[in-house]
Measured scan of single mutants.
Amino acid sequence: EPREEEAEKYIKRANGDYDKAQELAKKDGNEEIAEAIKEYKKR
């Protein structure tokens, strides 16, 4: 799923820090991806 791939990219950029990844996504205006990262975190 493209959303998950995007989320993974942010998580990698944030060195595995989900909260930081979420912030990066929000900064880029990717609210949807920020949500996907939140879902990811719950797994």
Rank of each mutant, 00 (worst) to 15 (best):
R13K: 12
Y40A: 13
E8H: 08
P2S: 15
G29H: 05
A25I: 01
A7Y: 08
A14L: 02
G29I: 01
A21D: 00
K26S: 09
K38Y: 07
E4L: 14
E4S: 13
R3S: 13
P2W: 15
L24V: 02
E5W: 13
E35H: 09
A21R: 01
K26F: 09
K9H: 11
G29Y: 03
A25Q: 00
K26R: 14
A21H: 01
E6L: 14
Y40P: 02
N30R: 15
D19F: 06
K41Y: 07
A7G: 03
L24K: 03
K9F: 08
K27A: 15
G29E: 03
E32N: 09
E39N: 08
E6R: 06
E35I: 10
N15F: 10
I11P: 03
A25P: 00
A36I: 15
A21Q: 00
Y40K: 12
R3M: 15
E31K: 09
L24D: 05
R13D: 11
K26N: 07
Q22W: 15
E31A: 10
N15E: 07
E32S: 10
K27R: 11
Q22V: 15
E4N: 15
A25W: 00
K26G: 04
E8T: 06
A21M: 00
I37T: 00
K41H: 06
D28K: 01
N15S: 06
K38D: 07
D28M: 03
N30M: 11
A25Y: 00
E5R: 13
I37R: 01
K42F: 07
K12S: 08
R13Q: 14
A36F: 15
R43M: 10
R43C: 09
P2V: 13
K41G: 06
Y40S: 07
E1C: 15
E32K: 11
K42M: 09
K9S: 11
N30G: 03
K42T: 07
Y40T: 06
N30K: 15
E1G: 14
R3K: 12
E39S: 06
K38E: 11
G29S: 04
N30P: 01
K27I: 12
I37L: 05
N30C: 07
G29K: 04
G29W: 02
K12R: 11
I33C: 05
N15L: 09
N30W: 07
N30L: 13
R13A: 15
K20G: 04
G16Q: 03
K42P: 04
A21C: 00
E32F: 08
K20V: 12
A34S: 06
Y18T: 03
Y10T: 03
E6A: 11
E39A: 08
E23M: 10
A7P: 03
R13I: 12
K38F: 07
K27P: 01
K12H: 09
I33G: 03
E39W: 06
Q22P: 00
E39P: 00
I33T: 07
Y10C: 04
A7N: 03
I11A: 00
L24P: 00
Q22A: 14
Q22G: 05
A14M: 03
K9Y: 12
E8D: 08
E39V: 05
K9G: 11
K27G: 08
K26D: 04
E6G: 07
Y40R: 12
D19T: 08
A21G: 01
E6H: 06
A36N: 06
R3P: 12
E31F: 15
A25E: 00
E5Y: 11
K27W: 08
A36G: 04
D17E: 03
D17I: 02
E31D: 13
E23H: 06
E1D: 15
E35F: 06
E8W: 14
K42G: 06
R13S: 08
D28Y: 04
